[in-house]
Simulated assay, not measured.
Amino acid sequence: MTQHQSAQTMKPATAAKKLGVYLDATPDEFRAGAVSRAELNALQTDPPEWLRDLRRDGPHPRPVVAAKLGVSISGLARGGVTEALTTEQIEALKTENPEWLQKERATQAEVRKEAVRIKEAQAEKAARADTTDQRD
Rank of each mutant, 00 (worst) to 15 (best):
W100T: 06
P59L: 05
K103H: 14
P12G: 14
T132V: 12
R112A: 15
E114H: 09
M1K: 06
P98W: 02
Q122A: 15
L54N: 03
A7Y: 04
E124W: 08
S72V: 13
Q3M: 11
E96D: 13
T45F: 08
A109F: 09
S72M: 09
K18V: 10
E91T: 15
T95P: 01
V21M: 03
Q3D: 13
S6W: 10
D136A: 11
M10G: 11
E96L: 09
A15I: 04
V71L: 03
R55L: 13
L93P: 02
Y22G: 00
P98S: 07
P98M: 02
A66D: 04
D57V: 01
W100Q: 02
R55K: 15
R117G: 03
P61Y: 07
L19F: 01
E124G: 07
T95E: 11
A126G: 06
R105V: 06
P27D: 07
R117L: 08
W100V: 06
T107F: 12
A123H: 05
Q108S: 15
D24V: 02
Q122D: 14
L76E: 06
K103V: 14
R105H: 03
K68Q: 14
D53H: 12
R105G: 05
L23S: 06
T132S: 14
A13T: 12
S72Q: 09
L76C: 11
V21R: 00
A13N: 08
R55W: 07
P12S: 11
M10T: 13
T26A: 15
G70E: 03
E99T: 14
S74F: 01
K94E: 07
R135Q: 11
G75D: 04
T132G: 05
T87P: 01
T26W: 05
W100H: 03
Q5P: 08
A84Y: 02
A38Y: 01
G20I: 01
V64F: 03
L93H: 02
Q108I: 07
E114W: 06
K94Y: 03
I118S: 02
D136Q: 10
E83Y: 07
G70V: 05
D136L: 13
A129R: 15
A115Q: 15
G20Y: 03
K17M: 13
A25I: 05
E83D: 12
A84E: 02
N41W: 01
A115I: 09
L93W: 01
R112Q: 14
A92M: 10
Q102E: 10
E91Y: 10
A106M: 11
E96H: 07
H60R: 07
A84N: 04
A34W: 10
V71E: 03
Q89H: 05
K18N: 09
S36D: 00
F30V: 06
S74L: 07
S72H: 09
Q102D: 05
R52Q: 13
D136N: 12
S72A: 15
A42E: 10
E96C: 02
A126E: 15
T95R: 07
V116I: 14
A84V: 03
R37T: 05
V81A: 00
P48T: 03
R37K: 05
